[in-house]
Amino acid sequence: MGEVAVIIKIMPKSPDVDLEALKVSIKEKLPGTQDMVVEPIGFGLSSLKVAIVVPDAEGTTEEAEATLRGLEGVESAEIVSVTLT
């Protein structure tokens, strides 16, 4: 089995969520994190797009998504794309 690159869009609960602190939490919980980009949404709210590499095994992408949803300050986490590396 190989690996897959997953891009997940993370929406914070409010514009007051510290995205830099959230980035640190993400790197601690998901060691396969490759890149994180802040995307402005509007009215002071921004999302994070996170690129991670996980093993190509059943359930690993959903596991990563669930881990991100469990972080403090995260409203939602949605897989945007998955591709083989």
Score class of each variant (00 low, 15 high):
50 V>Q: 00
72 E>R: 03
18 D>H: 11
35 D>F: 11
70 G>T: 01
74 V>N: 07
25 S>I: 00
46 S>Q: 08
61 T>P: 03
76 S>I: 10
17 V>D: 10
71 L>Y: 12
36 M>Q: 09
15 P>A: 11
66 A>W: 01
49 K>V: 12
53 V>N: 13
28 E>F: 02
55 P>L: 15
68 L>N: 11
3 E>I: 12
59 G>N: 11
65 E>V: 05
40 P>Y: 02
13 K>P: 02
41 I>R: 08
74 V>D: 09
43 F>R: 15
65 E>G: 05
26 I>E: 03
75 E>M: 13
2 G>M: 15
56 D>V: 00
56 D>Q: 10
18 D>I: 12
19 L>F: 07
81 S>P: 13
75 E>H: 14
45 L>V: 06
2 G>H: 15
81 S>T: 15
33 T>D: 13
10 I>T: 10
47 S>N: 11
40 P>C: 04
49 K>F: 14
2 G>A: 15
7 I>C: 01
29 K>D: 09
32 G>H: 04
51 A>V: 13
77 A>K: 00
10 I>E: 04
17 V>G: 07
59 G>Y: 05
36 M>I: 07
78 E>N: 12
57 A>L: 13
49 K>C: 01
70 G>W: 10
85 T>A: 15
3 E>L: 13
73 G>W: 08
68 L>V: 05
32 G>W: 05
10 I>L: 15
85 T>K: 15
52 I>W: 03
46 S>Y: 00
8 I>R: 03
84 L>M: 11
32 G>D: 03
60 T>C: 07
56 D>S: 03
84 L>T: 03
35 D>T: 09
49 K>H: 11
62 E>N: 08
47 S>T: 13
70 G>P: 04
41 I>K: 05
68 L>P: 00
46 S>E: 05
20 E>A: 09
6 V>S: 01
59 G>C: 06
83 T>H: 15
63 E>F: 06
39 E>A: 11
67 T>W: 06
85 T>S: 14
58 E>Y: 11
68 L>W: 01
67 T>A: 07
